[in-house]
Design a binder for these strands. Structure first.
Length: 197
DNA sequence: AACTTATCCAACCGCCGCTAC
DNA sequence: AGTAGCGGCGGTTGGATAAGT
């Protein structure tokens, strides 16, 4: 692994600690749980592995399609994308994108449009900046359309036949998170709405 | 069977925004 | 206004394992 792997005992201690004290206050978790891990490691382990309802295994075609659509709208905002995929973590989505989808993009035929899309990809891969906020999102969306088409063509026919409305509908089964709409959610929905026009 | 290469994914790192002081 | 501490995020790393030769 890319670091020191968590042991079963550490997992147990962390889980028990969070069950007892709840999430948040991550700076206290290592002390409370008696772990020699930093707050970030504890938080990551919980979010990506120990949290209930984590979905494991490969991504379904619908999920892949949704990731592509959301990425075209949001860029590399993995946590936001993962929030629309029940049981999936930002790390999962990010890994899947880096391992599968970005490679497909790079291997796609290099027409002028594709090159434009690739440029958009590069732009979206830049470190976080205020540009991640909504003002540029629409521009990114239009630049991503060629890539989206390439990806959809590689999917099965039934997935390719999915209407944008279907995807928007998929967003609504978000477990738990749907009750907690914030400003990002609003912007995100506006993007989806605009994209479906 | 042994070795090399590619792929996957858990974990770490550094940065950012927010908040309290 | 400045700053320290925190939670959170995205990018990157590197070990395990599968696939290929």
């Amino acid at each position: 692994m890319g670091g020191v792997a968590w042991t079963e005992e550490e997992d147990y201690l962390l889980k028990k600690c969070i069950e007892r004290y709840g999430e948040g206050k991550w700076h206290r978790i290592p002390v409370l749980a008696g772990l020699k891990r930093c707050r970030k490691s504890c938080r990551l382990r919980w979010l990506n592995y120990l949290r209930p309802n984590i979905k494991r295994g490969s991504f379904a075609a619908e999920e892949v399609n949704l990731i592509i659509n959301l990425h075209s709208l949001l860029g590399n905002r993995w946590s936001l994308i993962a929030g629309r995929l029940p049981g999936r973590t930002a790390n999962d989505v990010k890994n899947y994108w880096n391992c599968h989808l970005s490679k497909k993009l790079n291997s796609a035929p290099q027409s002028e449009d594709d090159q434009t899309a690739a440029a958009a990809t590069t732009a979206s891969m830049k470190p976080r900046s205020p540009a991640h906020a909504s003002p540029n999102t629409q521009q990114e969306t239009s630049m991503w359309e060629p890539f989206h088409d390439v990806q959809v063509n590689q999917q099965s026919k039934e997935v390719a036949a999915e209407e944008p409305e279907t995807l928007v509908g998929d967003l609504e089964f978000d477990e738990g998170g749907s009750s907690k709409w914030d400003w990002d959610d609003f912007i995100f929905d506006m993007d989806l709405w605009a994209a479906s026009l």
